[in-house]
Lab assay of single mutants.
Amino acid sequence: LKTAGVNTTDKEMEVLHLRNVSFEDAGEYTCLAGNSIGLSHHSAWLTVLEALEERPAVMTSPLYLEIIIYCTGAFLISCMVGSVIVYKMKSGTKKSDFHSQMAVHKLAKSIPLRRQVTVSADSSASMNSGVLLVRPSRLSSSGTPMLAGVSEYELPEDPRWELPRDRLVLGKPLGEGCFGQVVLAEAIGLDKDKPNRVTKVAVKMLKSDATEKDLSDLISEMEMMKMIGKHKNIINLLGACTQDGPLYVIVEYASKGNLREYLQARRPPGLEYCYNPSHNPEEQLSSKDLVSCAYQVARGMEYLASKKCIHRDLAARNVLVTEDNVMKIADFGLARDIHHIDYYKKTTNGRLPVKWMAPEALFDRIYTHQSDVWSFGVLLWEIFTLGGSPYPGVPVEELFKLLKEGHRMDKPSNCTNELYMMMRDCWHAVPSQRPTFKQLVEDLDRIVALTSNQEYLDLSMPLDQYSPSFPDTRSSTCSSGEDSVFSHEPLPEEPCLPRHPAQLANGGLKRR
């Protein structure tokens, strides 16, 4: 031991701790050491302190810390799992109470259905409401065949629209698609105040090879029609059969078919879209009749726009005509997947739907009320060519290029400059510069009032120099000039209409 001194630092001082000593042992101690050379000694003081209470040693090893962490984590996880189980049990009790009230408590799974309603004014964004509309049932219905791709499903009954099956008599087919079909039928007692009145209706139903998605689409269309409500110039929902059998959606019946066929059937002799010497046209149409058709469609679209509904496929083929020549817009409630459109795929009647699409819908897939206005301009062109085919002879690839360059279709022969300028306004490259349906209704209403009933179509000018029955994407082998976009001569082996020498072909294109 070194004694503290003047020249001794703290580091040089050493402390020796002795245990089991008493206060009597306190004092100075000297350590002597010697050898043959000499003797040396050092002294140190022993200080006795009071004994401290002994405390248990605390484990601070890493293993002990890990044990604490794992135990704490396990406890927290157990609490979370327990909370989830309690929540599930409570929510399951509430669901079972709800389904027992709906009398569908025996169901095993559900079809996820979404009601898609486009509400954005400047995009294709949609509001999806995840309302459960249908659930599968283990119960089988008697007297009705089961669908191959869709098991029997039981829908919640809506008393406002439900019609008993025994009050619906199915008739002949009116048309069909890939998985759905429409048949003519007679409904008894659609009007609650007149329970014995028989009404001719159209009934939409699924085919035998339909899938769950097809069922989902049909129900979504029905729900959309319920929500949009009734208007004179749209196909209205009349009722539905949802209980004890396949789903039947009952809508208004339009006896004169779609507008395109309606116009073609009323072309003057010699100007029909397909040469037929025995062709006997229906009643002749006046200019006022054509303007009235456009006015009614505009009114229907104005109503749909007021309900925040974007059609996305407005064309003469999707406008139906009733016995009283009332125009009714159809298929506005269809669920369309705008992100998976095949631009080169034709519709069932051979038309390319892209020829009715606005550039922003075609290139950027942006659907708005103003893109519907563009389609309405093409529909106007169809009306005043009596069912002509837009951009005849123009392949899709060429159409993309022409639209980007600002080309537009030429004025039809039997169309006034004012109406043609309306078409051109609908085809404005900037969507915000196109008229609204409200403005179109006002303009067409004024034109109808000024147009005489006696103004019949000028038969001295050809209505349509093209054969719409030909595929639109076909290139002409005998077109006049180098560019078949601006002219389209008859093919030698097929009868077509004579070309008027002083008139540019109706399907020609102009640059805006």
Rank of each mutant, 00 (worst) to 15 (best):
Y262S: 07
V448G: 14
D191N: 06
M461L: 06
M224L: 15
M222R: 14
G377R: 02
V441M: 08
G406S: 07
I228T: 09
D331E: 02
E282K: 08
T347K: 14
L259Q: 00
V321M: 03
E398A: 09
R336Q: 00
Y295C: 14
P195T: 08
T242A: 06
Y420N: 05
V396M: 11
G171V: 14
M227R: 12
K404E: 10
E282V: 06
A316T: 05
W381S: 02
E176D: 11
L440V: 05
Q465H: 07
Q296L: 13
E252K: 14
L184M: 12
D342E: 10
L399F: 03
L259V: 06
I235M: 07
G229E: 14
L170I: 09
L444R: 00
P471T: 09
D472V: 07
Q284H: 07
E186Q: 13
A298V: 09
V396G: 10
G171D: 06
N414T: 11
E283Q: 15
E405D: 10
G393C: 10
H279Y: 07
D244Y: 06
L352Q: 02
V394L: 11
K346T: 15
P435S: 02
F400V: 14
P269A: 07
A298P: 00
D458E: 06
K213R: 02
V354G: 01
N414D: 10
D372A: 01
D193A: 12
K288E: 03
S292F: 11
A202P: 10
L379F: 12
V326G: 03
E382D: 04
Y275C: 09
S476A: 14
D364N: 03
L247F: 06
S220L: 03
F400L: 10
E272V: 10
K404M: 08
S413N: 06
M225K: 02
F400C: 14
Y275H: 13
G387V: 00
I219L: 12
H311Q: 00
S475R: 11
N258Y: 00
L314Q: 01
K411E: 02
E302K: 13
T347A: 12
L170S: 03
F400Y: 04
S286T: 11
P268H: 04
G270E: 13
S292Y: 13
D244H: 14
Y248N: 05
M301V: 08
H369D: 10
E261D: 06
M227L: 13
Y344N: 01
K355M: 13
S287F: 07
E261V: 09
A358S: 02
A265G: 10
F470S: 09
K308T: 04
C241Y: 13
K345I: 02
W374G: 04
G270W: 09
H369Y: 14
S460C: 09
L444Q: 00
L457P: 11
N236S: 15
E397G: 14
N417T: 12
N280S: 11
K204T: 05
V321E: 02
L190R: 14
L174V: 12
L402V: 06
D443G: 11
Y391H: 10
L237M: 10
C241F: 03
R434K: 00
T416I: 11
T451N: 10
T473A: 13
M357I: 05
I228V: 05
N233Y: 15
V169I: 13
E283V: 10
G388S: 08
D364Y: 05
A330V: 06
Y420F: 03
K194R: 11
A330P: 03
K192R: 14
N280I: 12
S371N: 15
C241G: 07
A240G: 05
L238M: 09
M205T: 04
L386V: 12
I228L: 15
N280Y: 05
S287T: 06
L190M: 13
N349I: 07
V321A: 11
T211R: 09
V182E: 01
Y273F: 05
L459Q: 13
K194T: 10
R424W: 04
E272G: 08
